[in-house]
């Protein structure tokens, strides 16, 4: 059965301040599905989030922390949250700096939980 990527992404983009979300194959850094505001570059988000996530997953595993469940980066102009699921896939969310991190985190974990189930 085809996973409902679009449904999961749509739920994420309903969170206030979220500018877009993509499902990424982290091994390739390629977007499988995306829901983004006009002007946001889904391919760039997928490539960069995939690269960061793969390194962090390897790093946290090597440090004995176990596999990373969620990663977030806060920049001057926004927030990037990513969570892996289903082996090499991940969801990356791009949000405004003013977005509520707790709500973004909750929605993201909900989305990957639903897709992994």
């Amino acid at each position: 059965m085809k996973p409902n990527f679009e449904g999961a992404l749509e739920q994420l983009t309903r969170v206030r301040g979220v500018r877009g979300a993509v499902v990424v194959d982290a091994q390739d850094g390629i977007a499988l599905a995306g829901a983004l505001r006009d002007g946001e570059d889904g391919d760039a988000l997928a490539a960069l989030a995939g690269a960061v996530m793969m390194r962090l997953v390897r790093g946290s595993d090597a440090a004995g922390l176990g596999p990373a469940r969620l990663v977030y980066l806060r920049g001057d102009d926004g927030l990037l949250c990513a969570a892996p699921f289903g082996g090499t896939l991940l969801i990356a969310v791009l949000a405004d700096r003013s977005a509520n991190l707790g709500l973004v985190r909750l929605a993201l974990l909900d989305a990957v939980g639903g897709l992994a189930a």
Partner: peptide
């Protein structure tokens, strides 16, 4: 050590 997405980007 890299990905096709990053190289294309």
């Amino acid at each position: 050590e890299t990905t096709v997405g990053l190289v294309q980007l």
